[in-house]
């Protein structure tokens, strides 16, 4: 792992430099992996059981961190948006935008903060469109719960805590209010 990669290892509230990360696996593979890890009764029970054991929880979270950091530049926000962004991590956008690209994207698709890198959202759009999942980017993403940094997003997801992360335009509960977590 190079120096650039190691930066993501620094945990916490994102004080260190955040730069766009290009996912290391194709979108199709990521969607397939997601299908394998999709929420079901087994995973829900597993997650609850892991969460009850602090040592196990830390080990599990460390494993998740290593895998997702290598593949997606994961920063451990604990509320994963990857399935709705073509598996390009929006938390590696220097502005950590959860709802699409800013207006500063250069004509060649590079990031306004670092011209040597491709805008996370340009990558997200290309990957999602390629997989006929472009409509995912229309979802309204709610504000991040900053208490979840360094927590396991898989354990949160398996226990159904991510269900309110985003809403469609016409949904019944269109409020941006923070998702209440159990």
């Amino acid at each position: 792992m190079g120096a650039e990669q190691a930066m993501g290892v620094e945990q916490g509230m994102g004080v260190e430099r955040v730069l766009p990360f290009r996912p290391r696996i194709p979108a199709a593979l990521a969607y397939a992996l997601h299908a394998l890890l999709a929420r079901n009764r087994f995973y829900r029970r597993l997650a609850a059981s892991v969460e009850r054991r602090p040592v196990l929880y830390r080990a599990f979270t460390a494993g998740e961190r290593v895998a997702k950091e290598r593949l997606f530049g994961c920063r451990m926000c604990g509320q994963c948006a990857l399935p709705a962004t073509g598996y390009a991590c929006p938390m590696t956008c220097p502005k950590q935008l959860r709802n699409g690209p800013c207006g500063g994207v250069r004509p060649d698709g590079s990031c306004e903060v670092d011209r040597t890198r491709r805008c996370v959202w340009v990558v997200a759009w290309t990957r999602a469109e390629g997989a006929a999942r472009g409509a995912d980017l229309d979802l309204l993403q709610r504000p991040v719960d900053n208490r979840q940094w360094t927590r396991s997003s898989w354990i949160n997801y398996w226990q159904g805590r991510d269900e309110g992360l985003s809403v469609a335009h016409g949904d019944a509960d269109p409020r941006p209010r923070l998702v209440e977590r159990a």
């Binding site: 690209p101 207006g103 250069r106 698709g109």
Partner: peptide
């Protein structure tokens, strides 16, 4: 709000404003 119709990805820019209008 603001929008930049000319920044990439061009195909997403109208939808992005639609999202802000929904918000």
């Amino acid at each position: 709000t603001v929008e930049n119709p000319f920044a990439p990805p061009a195909a997403l820019r109208a939808r992005r404003l639609a999202k802000k209008v929904a918000a």
